[in-house]
Nucleic acid binder design. Sequence first.
DNA 1: ATCGTCTATCGTCAATGCACGATTATAATA
DNA 2: TATTATAATCGTGCATTGACGATAGACGAT
Lengths: 118, 118
Amino acid sequence: MITDASSCGQRFVDVEVLEKMDYETCKKMLARLSKGIAHPARIEIVRMLSNKPAEKKYICSDIVRALPLAQASVSQHLKILKETGWVYGEIDGARVRCSLVGNIMEYYRELVRKAIQE
Amino acid sequence: MITDASSCGQRFVDVEVLEKMDYETCKKMLARLSKGIAHPARIEIVRMLSNKPAEKKYICSDIVRALPLAQASVSQHLKILKETGWVYGEIDGARVRCSLVGNIMEYYRELVRKAIQE
DNA sequence: ATCGTCTATCGTCAATGCACGATTATAATA
DNA sequence: TATTATAATCGTGCATTGACGATAGACGAT
């Protein structure tokens, strides 16, 4: 059975929301998301997840295996990716299946545009 | 007279270069640039600079005046923006005119695409 | 019930980030 | 030459980051 992981945030983001967002909020949100990908290991994780078909999600141990880091370090990076809004996890028994937040790439790119070029 | 500020890095970036760049380098570069805009004050600075016509560049004191931070703090943020490749400065007498690195927005957006979606 | 697997968290350490006031260095100006 | 303006840097304090090994908790399988 698949249960919600309560601390894992939303599964999708809506680009429409950005239009009504005030600039201060935009700035903070862009800063937060940017911090999420401010480390090569986290970029690698985001890339792994974004290239994965939805029905074949990675579990944490897959990511540990793919990176040259200890399990604790990967878990910490995953935590930051969740806190900064890139990733969410679904608990499936003893495992956690990790996914990229839906539409986050378009959302980020649009946020960069809005926060900097407007 | 306008002189080079030796520590201020390049003035333009070329998106073409990204095509030949290996993935490890891409990751590091994206991580570095992302760190640059991982703070609201630095996003504000980048935004100020990107909205400025080339012939009317800001000097550092303009930026200090626009932000609710001490001069030392702004100087530190500007240093990070230079180190991470967003901004360069041209020394003009006692002043430093700050500019956004040419084409950096397109470069960053393309880097996000390449490092994550390829 | 016990074992092995999976994942989060704890504790630690060194390094870095961010804020500030104070100081210094340089250039323009009076 | 003395003064003022500009910007970088120093020194400090505090919080955060990033790495790790060790541990704990949850689950499935035997």
